[in-house]
């Protein structure tokens, strides 16, 4: 297990003792945010995050609001980017923690963490980033990013499910959230999930080795998919196409039709995509991320996310390109919108 810790620490430029093993991204986020908020409560009660975070961050902040903390949710621009200037303005003398995700799970947009963390450092608050989407996909060095805490989850880099880690910079005060014995230097009690941890380290090693090649191959496929869809289907929006983005994600908004009906039709063709925010696909709310980017309700409702991966082939993308225009046309024929009367 300690070998696994070293592998993981080295891959992000951290020290072994700065890695805390957890049950995944959700627990890492809970531990980081609640842990710092509780440990520094005497110093202040103001927290800052963004309006596009994953629910594993947003719901922690909402719970902290009920416990008396004051939370600022930073806006994003149309591309989904948080602006360092907005962050600077939001900081108060009593701000103790800022948490902004590295890459968004719906749009793939990569936030300017280096610039944001600089603003936070000058102010003296603690900075956390949810890097669940980026660890194993793009190179990460905690010192270059300038973060104090960083969450990761193994299954996002083809490791086992139910295991992850939290990087905690030396000297960062953190109240444990699971109480018990002195495991993980008293930051997370309970006997560690050793098989999961070993699997996670191996998966990260492989991901690091293949990173460059994968980025090129998958990125090329993604760009090709987007070019073809844009050329073949009228009235679609490819979200954040102009912003720095993860190479594996493509979020497409289709005017006049609804996301679930698109998803079902693609599923009939054996193509698996997500609609809205994947984890909340049974919820009716359109994505909070798209609404925060300023897209209208109806358009945010017609979102389809293509997540490409290690096993995505050129043939699969050709298939999407071939069937997608017909599906959209069929659904638009049923829709009351978008027709010339």
């Amino acid at each position: 297990m300690e070998k696994a810790r070293s592998v993981i620490a080295r891959s992000i430029g951290a020290r072994d003792e700065e890695i805390v093993f957890t049950s995944g991204g959700t627990e890492s986020n809970n531990l980081a945010i609640r842990g710092v908020a509780q440990a520094l409560r005497k110093k202040g009660n103001h927290l800052v995050t963004s309006s596009i975070e994953h629910h594993a961050v947003l719901n922690v902040f909402r719970a902290l609001e009920k416990e008396g903390f004051v939370v600022t949710y930073l806006p994003v621009d149309r591309e989904g980017l948080v602006h360092p200037e907005d962050l600077r303005k939001a900081l108060r003398p009593e701000t103790i923690l800022v948490s902004i995700m590295h890459a968004n799970n719906e749009t793939g947009v990569i936030e300017p963490i280096e610039e944001l963390s600089r603003v936070v450092r000058e102010h003296g608050a603690v900075f956390h980033t949810d890097a669940v989407q980026t660890v194993g996909k793009i190179p990460i060095q905690v010192d270059a990013l300038g973060v104090d805490l960083l969450s990761a989850s193994a299954h996002k880099f083809y490791g086992p499910k139910g295991v992850g880690f939290l990087y905690v910079r030396k000297g960062t005060r953190l109240a444990p959230q699971i109480l018990g014995g002195h495991h993980e230097r008293s930051r997370r009690a309970g006997t560690e999930n050793v098989p999961g941890i070993v699997g996670m380290a191996k998966a990260l090693e492989i991901a690091q080795d293949e990173m460059g090649e994968e980025a090129g191959r998958v990125g090329t496929l993604r760009d090709w998919l987007e070019e073809e869809l844009q050329a073949r289907v009228p009235d679609i929006v490819i979200v954040s196409r102009g912003a720095p983005r993860l190479y594996n994600t493509s979020l497409v908004l289709v005017e006049y039709v609804e996301g679930e009906s698109l998803l079902l039709n693609l599923d009939f063709e054996g193509i698996c995509v997500s609609s809205g925010s994947a984890c909340t696909s049974s919820s009716l709310e359109p994505s909070h991320v798209l609404l925060a980017c300023g897209y209208p309700h109806a358009l945010a409702h017609g979102s389809i996310r293509f997540s490409l991966g290690k096993w995505t082939t050129k043939e699969e993308i050709s298939r999407v390109v071939a069937v997608f225009p017909g599906i959209v046309e069929k659904l638009r024929a049923i829709s009351p919108f978008g027709k010339v009367r």
């Binding site: 006049y256 009906s261 049923i334 829709s335």
Partner: peptide, 10 residues
């Protein structure tokens, strides 16, 4: 009918 909606709505 014309419907803008999910699978169940259609």
């Amino acid at each position: 009918f014309e419907t803008f909606g999910c699978g169940a709505a259609i």
